[in-house]
Design a protein around this nucleic acid. Structure first.
Lengths: 207, 207
DNA sequence: GATATTGTTGAACGATCGTATAACAACTTG
DNA sequence: CAAGTTGTTATACGATCGTTCAACAATATC
């Protein structure tokens, strides 16, 4: 019989680790995102998320305002990660306005963005928008950021300022609609088709 | 004390009515739609729907393949009603192709279509698309019908056949994206703005 | 009016939900 | 090394979930 944690003088094996509050929050948010991606919007229960994170269920209530609060933070994190990645690609594309917006288009339909697993996060979020003002405000903020990014790209392409708002709103809606369809029916619409459609639209806008 | 159902000779008050299977199914579907609209996607439980319909919870299992089956039928019914209403307006608009497609655009953002309460039905449906092939097929069908309708409208406006598919896909996605945003944030985007955006797009397509 | 059929009820079942909380243990502090 | 702090666990609780099913009653049939 080998030594174990109960033997006198055995090396103690801590039953759990204490974590920095921020690190713990990130851990839980990432676990929530994984559960949403794997199980869908209805599978994101306290117990499933806690198990995924390797912690006790009670810990979620300790760090967030219940499951809703955690989902809200997860949405915020996932949106930031996805949109951050998209605009990082745009920056890496250099200074040419046309190249930048084309990179933006392609990035929006890359496999990591137009991913059915990602849709679950949005669905879980949309489910709560109708009844929770907190979620409504969060949607307003993130949507505004996204449209502002598009406005910048279009402005660099020489789109007149008085048309910017409407054209960016239209382009945002077009991308969202194609993204949704791509997530719901990956075998009905291809990413290349979506890219081609948005490209054609941008060319019509920028003349 | 007045006579009641337990008094001898009192007019008998049936405890329940038997219904035609089709009528009962319609009743349950409509109740499900109302619950989805009022309570949201998470509130559509067997008990809530049965209470709304004024029947016993067990009856849902008798007529449908569980709650999922009822939600699937409800989605089918709501989509048919909404799209049917839209294309009925188009028919009522007469024979002029431009008038028809403009009516179509306005109908898509009328208060009864771009209704936040309606979004709950779509969300409940989208939640199940990822994991249930039945729902995936239903989405494919209904989406195809909608796009086919748009293709017809564009064809009548003289859009070349080899462009029809892509243009209709784009227009469908644009409408969906604007509709979604209108449902999620009714005070951020107005129906008139959405109509104007789609009008401009159609004019660019039809030349 | 008696009988058969079956739509319908309502309760019971096990599972799972979110939350609260007492006990415990990891870490900090003195 | 002892004491205090608090992050963490694990359980218990009440509520609600979807489904099942024996019993009942509304209707059809004869």
């Amino acid at each position: 019989m080998t030594k174990d944690a109960t033997s006198p003088g055995a090396a103690r094996v801590p039953a759990f680790r204490r974590a920095e509050p921020d690190a713990r929050r990130r851990t839980l948010i990432e676990a929530c995102a994984r559960v949403l991606a794997r199980e869908g919007a209805t599978g994101a229960s306290v117990r499933a998320i806690a198990k995924e994170a390797g912690v006790s269920p009670g810990l979620i209530g300790h760090y967030f305002a219940g499951v809703e609060g955690l989902v809200a933070e997860t949405y915020r994190a996932v949106v930031s990660r996805v949109n951050g990645g998209i605009f990082a690609e745009v920056e890496a594309a250099g200074g040419d306005a046309r190249a930048r917006i084309d990179t933006f288009i392609r990035a929006n339909f890359s496999p990591v963005v137009a991913d059915p697993a990602l849709l679950a996060t949005w669905i879980a979020f949309w489910t709560m928008v109708a009844s929770r003002p907190l979620f409504r405000g969060l949607h307003h903020d993130k949507n505004g950021e996204f449209r502002a990014g598009i406005e910048g790209l279009l402005a660099d392409c020489g789109v007149a300022e008085d048309r910017l708002r409407a054209e960016a709103t239209a382009l945002s809606a077009l991308i969202d609609g194609l993204w949704l369809e791509l997530c719901l029916a990956p075998d009905g619409l291809s990413a290349d088709q979506a890219v081609a459609i948005v490209r054609a639209q941008v060319e019509r806008i920028t003349g």
